[in-house]
Amino acid sequence: MKTSSPQWNIVLIFQSLLRVACGILLIYASSDKLGDPDKFLKVIENYHVLPADLLPLAAVVIPWLEFFTGLCLSLGFQWRGAAFVFCSLMGIYTLALAWNLAQGTEMNCGCFAMDATEKLTGWTVLRDLVFFMSGLFVLTAKQTYAAVKKE
């Protein structure tokens, strides 16, 4: 049996666990949005970053993109591409939230629950930044464990 250094294995295990965690996180985040595109449209409208013509399409596509990306990450199916999408989503969310925070806009993040009264703060931006960094860490993994499809 081929062995590598124990430390490297621990990193790979951690990256694999993080991959699954990121996947579950996205599935959870999408669950409240999938059935109510009209409400989600109002949430993303408040971000004031997308043109009006693109809002309905984004309200329909983003929740399903989150769901399928989460599914791929947690199952380890095309996980690297999914990690790339995860990073892209989190990067966009972080920038949009930071921009609104800098503008002093009062808004609900709508990140996990659309009816939540959680206000946008620096912590919200920091949290999304941590998610982004986690995705980046998963993306840079040399390989992953517990995947349905090996590379």
Binding site: F68, T69, Q78, R80, G81, F84
Partner: peptide
């Protein structure tokens, strides 16, 4: 490969 997978997923 990653970009292609991401595009397919999207």
């Amino acid at each position: 490969k990653s970009l292609l997978e991401a595009w397919n997923l999207f």
